[in-house]
Design a binder for these strands. Structure first.
Lengths: 370, 370
DNA sequence: ACGGTTCGCTAAACCGGTTTAGTCGCGGCC
DNA sequence: GGCCGCGACTAAACCGGTTTAGCGAACCGT
């Protein structure tokens, strides 16, 4: 017959202690406004009743939640299976936690990101993978929530943190060119078929531009670069490489847009009998912890993922602290190429002659092996 | 001089539409109580004003937050760097999301888990790695929050989800015994030095019992099993193995309590010149996706991590739906050994006794994992 | 024509706190 | 002795919604 133990309210404490609600509130929030012994007595009564101020009621009156939101257009389950995101969250969590803020992940609810935003009880938002043209951006603004964008800086009125994707990509391509590679395959991130599109398009575009500019600068033909896309996971990378191979593409090097895809491509290559880096060089992007541990250790473009998260939160907190109008800040973090064991000189005899940069191989004739 | 755009309130909509607050509320929550055209008009006005019901105010009146909490005694940053936790969260997120619930991670704030719980605005809690004797358990109960425990089932009044750690560990040890191993090193999880202790102690204890019972059942000396502890990470596993080796322990096999530690141990062994599995067999625990991708592929005890998360949420939701008294459910999920490439016959000449009949038995018929 | 429903809407109470604007009693000051 | 100021506390308004109780008009059957 026992009913769910209803938690004591402030009025219960007040009655029990023989004081007003106000006094109880003071005892917790500004004890100096009460006689010391009164404050002590109230707190003792509260303790004995097991009273804790109701967090929702507090949020309502104080007009702040002490919680920050991490906004992402992908489902939570997808998020957590993505190591990139895990590292990013680590950075976000660390700074938020240090400043006494909790974290809430805002992801599409019943397929609607707008709905999720409407439900979110946060003081500010870090948005990752959200392109500027997302309608949700407008919704966040109308909700009066400060926001910092990550991986997108084309909304000047919001703070932003980006990395130099283009420079990193260019460095990766230059590295391959110096090693003599003349036919590379770019393994790009495909945007998810359904659901709200994320901003991979923007980042992909920048990286592709970086890759290509290196080849152009080296006076190499644009056709030296072929592109295939896949999901950004080990399996996605493997599948993408297999698909490219099946369609007759025979690169001597792979430029993958994520470490996971690079690892997948390596695996697929190995299964096709291509030794890495002897027959095929592979470059990743991200420099996850994992990258140093695979065999061979992955050459990759390092981007400060953790720092992206922590910096975004710092910007956001600055905006929250700002009393009046506050000029949003824009940060661009550096990337750098980390050369490990998955890249090496292009295999001999694969270079197109200098006079004939196109040196197209007849795909049909070469399909002999299958 | 522009002030932060204050979001419109329900009263603004009411005034603008020439109706009462009640009518506006009805227009959103029970439109059938209004004349259709009135409801439509109110919604149009609301839209034009950009009105959204304030989520905190809603929570307060409806006495529910539509959010579930994931309670963990570790810092968020630690959590996210732990792949085990990522997979678990995936399971949690998937079910929560499907039922329209958001997720909030509750971890120590300024070192105090109690403080974090006090701030959490959730309808129920999934607690992982929380031992029964934690004082926080009592706090959650007093807050009137339903709770489901994961990896701990000694609180009968709360639902629970555990896996059969002991049986899985026993299977792993039996596998090694059949392969002829007689000197094994258990790489256990050390409990973090400071901060609130998590429940690894309970799980570790169970697994250790499983390991030992296999050796006892095979009439092997207890001294065949030595134990070393380390942090549950690749580095932690490597360090632990090195430490054991340095202190003169010379096992032919390692039973690690996590895949990460197993991988670390493999790396450390390789650096010591020990080939896996020829000179040293290694068994992990968890069966992360990663386990199949390392070289050699890791033999490990599979536990349904994702399912632990999803099942815990299902139990919790059932408790939330329950109108009256509800008997909490307790689930125990199975574990199973996945044999891959990191285990093999004990190297010749290492056996303490030649009389043991099991010694020559070939690798038994266990499922070969991919 | 009249009492009883039903419909469409509203006023006021409520959720559980915080905060503002006092009230009350007392000691000090001139 | 009257006024002021101050310390300790409280009543009431408020945060932004939802919900209950109820009101007036239209409708309905007899």
């Amino acid at each position: 017959m026992e009913q769910r133990p209803s938690r004591p309210r402030i009025a219960d404490v007040a009655r029990e202690a023989g004081v007003s609600k106000t006094a109880v509130s003071f005892a917790f929030n500004s004890p100096e406004r009460l006689a010391p012994e009164t404050a002590t007595r109230i707190r003792e009564v509260a303790d004995s009743l097991g009273y804790r101020p109701h967090p929702v009621a507090r949020m309502l009156t104080q007009r702040q939640t002490m919680t920050l939101g991490v906004l992402t257009p992908q489902a939570l389950a997808v998020i957590f299976s993505n190591p990139f995101f895990a590292v990013f969250s680590e950075g976000v969590a660390q700074v938020a936690e240090a400043h006494g803020y909790g974290l809430q992940f805002i992801s599409p609810m019943h397929g609607s990101l707008a709905l999720a935003i409407g439900r979110a009880t946060v003081d500010g938002v870090v948005a990752i993978g959200l392109s500027a043209d997302h309608p949700e951006v407008e919704q966040v603004r109308r909700a009066g929530l400060p926001m910092v964008l990550v991986d997108s800086d084309d909304l000047p009125e919001h703070g932003s943190v980006v990395v130099d994707d283009e420079a990193g990509a260019r460095a990766a391509a230059e590295h391959l060119i110096r090693l003599g590679h003349r036919r590379v395959l770019v393994v790009a991130v495909e945007r998810p078929a359904s659901g709200p599109d994320d901003n991979t398009a923007g980042v992909s575009e920048l990286r592709l531009r970086g890759y290509r500019s290196a080849f152009t600068a080296a006076s190499l033909d644009r056709t030296a670069v072929s592109v295939v896309a896949g999901r950004t996971s080990i399996e996605g990378g493997a599948a993408a490489f297999q698909r490219a191979w099946a369609s007759g593409i025979r690169p001597t090097a792979v430029l993958a847009m994520s470490d996971a895809m690079a690892i997948g491509a390596m695996r697929a290559a190995r299964e096709l009998g291509l030794r890495v880096p002897d027959a095929l060089s592979v470059v990743g992007f991200d420099d996850l912890d994992l990258a140093a541990h695979v065999d061979p250790p992955l050459t990759t473009v390092h981007q400060p993922i953790r720092q992206k998260g922590s910096e975004a939160v710092r910007l956001l907190l600055a905006e929250l602290d700002a009393t009046g109008a506050h000029r949003p800040e824009h940060r661009r973090l550096a990337t750098r190429l980390i050369v490990r064991g998955s890249t090496g000189p292009a295999p001999a005899g694969t270079e197109p002659t200098a006079t004939n940069p196109i040196a197209t191989e007849p795909p049909a004739a070469e399909a002999r092996g299958t």
